[in-house]
Simulated scan of single mutants.
Amino acid sequence: MKLYSDVPVQRFGQVVGDLVLAAWVWACVELGLLVYKVTDALGAPGRKAAEAGDGLAGDLRRMSEPIGKVPAVGDQLRAPIDGAAGAAGKLAQAGRDQAHAVEQLAYVLAAVTIGVPVLFAVLIWLPRRIRFARRATAAQRFIDNAADLDLFALRAMANQPMHKLAKISADPVTAWREGDREVVRALATLELRSTGLKPPPDLQHSETPADAP
């Protein structure tokens, strides 16, 4: 498959376009990572609350164990401490839930920041590159020698703008039908270059009506 044009100006534009797309993807990824870091940092209070709640709940439970062993009143003394430990555990769970929600939001925002602009750019870039590759690859199979120029001359008359055809001949259709080789070569060159191919060597060194002063 032919990915780049043989025509220098067109090939330069394709390379620049590919580099711009790569730079755009890199910039979007960097921005997405920054968005993730900034958003995820908002979950720090929740993580700290969860850590503090777990620590407090653990301390209260360790405290309640020996108190619960006090004869007669141990259970009564232990109940408020166990209740406080349970409340601390709920506080820790709320902190974890908040931190998890922020983390999920950070992932979503990062994915949107990266995915949407990259997808938009690829949807613009990819069809054009695929279309060029298919056209150039298909055309390359036919341009073996000068005998194939008639086909590309015919395609030029069907595809190229009228003002470009007029620069080659005042009546390119009649010239093509009469087998005017100079006009045929000029038309074929025009079509080949638009497809991203260089004409055969014998065509490159031949003067055409479009090149004549």
Rank of each mutant, 00 (worst) to 15 (best):
L60K: 04
G179W: 11
G17D: 00
A121Y: 05
Q10Y: 03
A79D: 02
R128S: 11
V38D: 01
L203E: 10
D75C: 04
P66N: 00
A92P: 04
G68A: 07
R181H: 11
K90H: 11
S194H: 13
V7M: 08
G17L: 03
R135T: 09
V9E: 10
A50F: 08
R135I: 13
A146C: 09
A79S: 09
F12M: 06
W26H: 05
P66G: 05
Q10R: 10
A84C: 05
V116R: 09
A156H: 02
P127F: 02
K37P: 04
S169N: 03
L31F: 01
K164S: 12
R128Q: 12
T208I: 04
G17A: 01
R11M: 07
R193V: 09
A50L: 12
L165F: 05
T189H: 09
H205T: 12
R128L: 12
C28A: 14
W176T: 01
W176F: 10
L149C: 14
R177N: 09
G17T: 02
R78W: 06
A79F: 10
A88Q: 11
V16E: 01
A156L: 01
A139S: 15
G89N: 06
T174H: 03
P172N: 04
A23L: 14
A153C: 01
Q93V: 06
R181M: 13
D59T: 10
M162D: 12
L109G: 07
H163M: 12
L21P: 06
L126I: 05
G46F: 06
N145E: 15
S64N: 07
K167W: 01
V118C: 11
D150S: 14
I130Y: 08
L197N: 08
K90G: 14
K198Q: 12
V118E: 04
T208N: 03
A94H: 05
P8H: 07
D6L: 08
P209N: 01
A147L: 12
A27N: 11
L19I: 09
D202F: 00
G17E: 00
A166P: 04
L149K: 13
T174G: 04
A22H: 00
G13T: 00
A72D: 10
G95L: 10
P71M: 01
S64H: 03
G86M: 13
A153M: 05
G95E: 00
V35N: 07
L33Y: 09
D150V: 15
V9H: 07
M1P: 00
L31V: 08
R141W: 10
A188V: 08
E30Q: 14
Q93F: 10
C28E: 07
A88R: 08
L105D: 03
A156M: 05
Q93G: 02
L126A: 15
A79P: 04
D148L: 10
K198E: 14
Q76W: 13
